[in-house]
Structure formats: structure tokens, C-alpha cells
């Protein structure tokens, strides 16, 4: 095998990799983040060079293409809309993803969900009402601000899109009922059965049979019974907040919420507040 002069041998590369790994770890242990970042980049280069020298061209990773297939052909916003429509209540991206995977063909790519609400808001502000629906925020009942990490559909009545202190539970029960009823109409997949079990295990009286199995009708009945306890109190709060929102908020705010822009802690970059909901980003990235 010929090697052009100056190209390091695999042994040299290995020594280099060992050296760089040690250097990165030392930099991190000493709290030198910038130094570590530079070294880390060098390390990745050296690892790639080693891969090329020793392993040659890697075959196209099989897993990635399989994921592509599983995603299905629908745009992400369509998928999210379907899942939310089935759930019938504000939901976190994680639940939306699980519900879609359990009841629809394919999966919603996680990283796309993270930026979805921002994209929707941008689209609405550029051309209001150009689309038949938007995926938008749930609003907190007290401040009419976007609730952290919840998605809703713009065509829902405002009351449904507003969340008070009792709403997370009420919505969870509403979703349980709707998923159970949907499951009753067909033969639920193993993923769907697992999801229903997850719901049933946290609702009193919903898990009747053996551990891990759930009777959709029993789940729906138990969820209805608990929902009866919370519904009126929850609804009163949501309705009064919705009235306030109609009075005070413009269209865009009604969909994406109003933010506290005036108050700002000193020392924080100003851009942080103007950016569309950093708290939400943090949640979905994790």
C-alpha cells in the first residue's frame, strides 16, 4: 500500500487521538471550555482521518434511511394536526409524537417539532389566515401568555386553547377519553395499547385487568368519572380568561400569546425576550 509523504500512518493517528482525548478531558476538568472546544474539533478530524485510513469508505448507514421511510409522506404540520385533532386538547410535543406513532402510520421527526411553533407564528405574521389552520400556543389563563411546551390548533375555540391550573389534568382526562373511544373503534396496535396503559395507570379505577392490559371502555368511563370532578371549575376559569383574551389581544396574540416584554432582568441579553419563547425551545430540545 502506498502512502503519500506527510499523510500520517494509522499508528500515528491513534497516538494523536489518544493525545487529543487526554487533552480535551484535561481542558474540561480544568474548566477551560474554549480550549476543549478547539481540541474536540481536532479530535474529530483525527478520528475521521483514522476511519478513512483504516476502514476506508463507510457504507451508507442503513438506519437513517429506515427512519426516513418510517416518517411517512405527510408534512410535519399535517401530522401534528392529526394527532392534536385526535387528542382534542392542548398537548406537549412528546405526547403528540407518541400518539402519532401509536395511531398513525409513521413517526413525527422530533427535531422538526421543536421549531414548529416558531415557524407557524412567522408564517401567520407574514400572511395572516393564509392557511386553513395554524399550530399555535396554549395561553395561560392568568397572563394570556404562551404556556410552556403546549401546542394547540388555531381553529379550536379559545376556551379550549386556554389553560388554567386545573386544565392540565382536565385535558389529560379528555385526551384519555378520546383515545380510548378511538381505540374501541378498531384494533389498537401494541404501541397504542402501551399508550392507553400509561393513561390508565394514572387514573383511578381505569386499570381493571392484569398489569399492562387495558379495557378501552373502562378507561373512558374512569376518565369521565374523574373529569366530572374537575370540569365545571376548570371551564369557568377558561371561559373568563377567554373573555379577557377577546377583549385585550389582537389576532396574532390570541393565537401565539402575549409576552412580558417590558420586564427584564438586568444582565440578560435583550434578544432573549424577543425570541419566540426560549422556554419552549428548551423543553422540546431536551
Amino acid at each position: 500500500m502506498f502512502r503519500s509523504p506527510g499523510v500520517p500512518t494509522p499508528d500515528e493517528l491513534e497516538a494523536r487521538i489518544t493525545e487529543l482525548r487526554a487533552a480535551v478531558r484535561r481542558a474540561m476538568a480544568a474548566g477551560d471550555r474554549d480550549g476543549a472546544r478547539g481540541l474536540r474539533a481536532e479530535l474529530r478530524d483525527a478520528e475521521r482521518a483514522w476511519d478513512d485510513a483504516v476502514l476506508g469508505d463507510a457504507p451508507a448507514p442503513a438506519a437513517a434511511s429506515r427512519n426516513e421511510d418510517r416518517r411517512g409522506l405527510q408534512p410535519v404540520r399535517e401530522q401534528v394536526h392529526q394527532a392534536l385533532t385526535l387528542l382534542g386538547a392542548p398537548a406537549a410535543p412528546k405526547l403528540i409524537g407518541t400518539v402519532y406513532a401509536a395511531f398513525f402510520p409513521g413517526e413525527i421527526p422530533g427535531q422538526r417539532l421543536a421549531s414548529l411553533r416558531r415557524d407557524e407564528e412567522r408564517s401567520f405574521r407574514t400572511a395572516p389566515y393564509a392557511r386553513p389552520y395554524y399550530l399555535c400556543a396554549a395561553l395561560t389563563a392568568d397572563m394570556l401568555a404562551p404556556a410552556r411546551g403546549l401546542l394547540t390548533v388555531s381553529t379550536w375555540p379559545l376556551e379550549r386553547r386556554i389553560v388554567g391550573p386545573l386544565s392540565p389534568r382536565a385535558d389529560f382526562l379528555t385526551s384519555a377519553i378520546r383515545l380510548a373511544e378511538h381505540a374501541e373503534r378498531g384494533t389498537p396496535s401494541p404501541d397504542a395499547r402501551r399508550l392507553l396503559w400509561r393513561f390508565a395507570s394514572t387514573i383511578p379505577g381505569a386499570a381493571t385487568g392484569t398489569v399492562g392490559t387495558v379495557e378501552p371502555a373502562a378507561l373512558a368511563a374512569a376518565a369521565r368519572a374523574e373529569l366530572d370532578v374537575h370540569r365545571d371549575r376548570d371551564l369557568r376559569r377558561r371561559e373568563s380568561a377567554a373573555r379577557r383574551a377577546r377583549d385585550r389581544l389582537d389576532d396574532a396574540q390570541r393565537l401565539f400569546g402575549s409576552r412580558l416584554r417590558a420586564v427584564r432582568e438586568s444582565g440578560r441579553p435583550a434578544a432573549r425576550n424577543a425570541a419566540p419563547d426560549p422556554a419552549h425551545d428548551r423543553e422540546t430540545d431536551g
Binding site: 480535551v24 463507510a58 448507514p61 438506519a63
Partner: peptide, 25 residues
Amino acid sequence: TDPTFDNEVLAPAIASYDRSGGDPR
């Protein structure tokens, strides 16, 4: 294991295993 080993060596190696789709290398 040592945390800097976890963060700088092990985690990238596991991640690349995950991405490789079961590549023995």
C-alpha cells in the same frame, strides 16, 4: 467511570454506534 471519559470519549462513541445502524466497526 470518570465523567470526562463519559462526556468526551464514551458518549461520542455510543452516539456513533447508534448512528451506524449496527456497523460492527
